[in-house]
Design a protein around this nucleic acid. Structure first.
Lengths: 241, 241
DNA sequence: ACCTGAACACCGTTCAAGT
DNA sequence: ACCTGAACACCGTTCAAGT
């Protein structure tokens, strides 16, 4: 009885000491797990080695922990990817300065997204995986707001925003696919030259357009072409009255 | 020696008999493996149960064979998915009647693709996986040809085709994502109502546009909105001179 | 409360062995 | 030539056990 008390007493003191040191550690230790740290490590793996390299085992190894530990902070791999994507998109949307002219603002948003997805191609794939999510909502909201400012009639705003967002998502997805295809090693222009050569070799009778456009493919700039598409849609939107 | 000759002779005869019966069987037996039959079975699984249900084990079970047998006809899962996607797209491109008016033709191509991807949502995801492939090439060629017929200046044709195709791919990807989210059981209108309700509940101060557009979301028709986007881009293209 | 790491139920792909 | 199916090297996820 007395012995038990001692033990309990001691164990409480030990617990308190442990808690105290833990509290210090939580602040001091740089390697304490948290959702933010996990998301950060995931982003590093994704950027450096692509989507296929992101496994819970690789993540655990990088974080020097067990693979199961990650599940204490993150519900699933989907959850992790969503959080990582939201991080990237939210940063873009915050960084974009809302220009006075709505047309310029839309171009800025679009280019911001393009550059972010160019830097993190896996985001392009992820935006297609879980729609109606925070990231997409923010894009939709920001684009839509500028369309209102542009004076697009209420009835047409939804369709116009949808067109712009779907176009952006389409380019994003293709960018992700290209990045997956020629992982960081291959030179972009060399890759384009290869595809252009293949296009040029196609039978002009069967593929007249692709055959003809092969030269432009080699010389074209993805970013400029992306912006040309945005301008095309904006020109179309301007005709809606 | 003599014995050997007999054996060889007999075995040749047996071989010929086997070849004869095999030849008959190849024509008669409905369950002989071939790339076409594998692609067909894959398409059935994809349509019925979605992308996640397509495994080599499930495919082998449906074809009543071993999982390794499939690799005799198909190089990999990627190869299989590409072949399946090409099948669907090629059918659409053949079915689309080239209308006299190029603008109408583009709308027909776009709607054909939309309907095909609506019927086979997994195609939308696959188009984003392996670009520069047969399926994409056909789409690009057909769209580009109509732009030439429309009288779009040479310099602008590439950008215009890219804009249309990327928009179509964007919608395709979102369709695939939605299908993945609410597998065949859920009602589409019920799903839209749920999302619309969520949008309506968002803080109007933070999400003024999305909040306002929630009603239109519930009532909108995906196909009509898709076509509205195509018309928007076509209107923009018309301004390019 | 948080972490560990073995275990489970899967994958795509390979390959020796059959016919 | 074509098929079989066990085996391999992975996955994401769970969970008893630790601290």
């Amino acid at each position: 009885m007395f012995h038990e008390y001692i033990l309990e007493h001691r164990s409480n003191r030990v617990k308190m000491m442990l808690m105290a040191t833990r509290a210090q550690r939580t602040e001091r230790r740089a390697d304490a797990l948290s959702k933010e740290r996990i998301v950060g490590a995931a982003m590093e793996i994704l950027d450096a080695h692509g989507e296929s390299a992101l496994t819970f085992r690789a993540l655990a190894a990088r974080l020097a922990t067990g693979s199961g530990a990650i599940y204490w902070h993150v519900a699933s791999k989907n959850d992790l990817l969503a959080a990582t994507t939201n991080d990237v998109i939210a940063r873009v949307m915050t960084d974009v300065v809302s220009s006075a002219e709505p047309r310029e603002a839309i171009r800025a948003i679009a280019l911001g997204l393009f550059d972010a997805i160019d830097a993190h191609p896996w985001v392009g794939a992820q935006l297609h995986r879980e729609p109606w999510q925070s990231a997409m909502l923010q894009i939709f909201e920001t684009v839509g707001g500028q369309l209102q400012a542009l004076g697009v009639p209420d009835r047409a705003q939804f369709d116009c925003a949808s067109a712009l967002v779907n176009y952006i998502l389409g380019v994003a997805g293709q960018n992700a696919a290209n990045a997956r295809l020629h992982a960081h090693d291959t030179d972009r222009s060399a890759f384009l030259a290869t595809v252009a050569a293949r296009w040029a070799q196609l039978d002009p009778a069967e593929y007249p357009f692709v055959h003809e456009v092969a030269t432009q493919l080699r010389e074209h700039d993805d970013r400029e072409q992306f912006l040309a598409g945005i301008d095309l849609i904006l020109a179309g939107i301007t005709t809606v009255r």
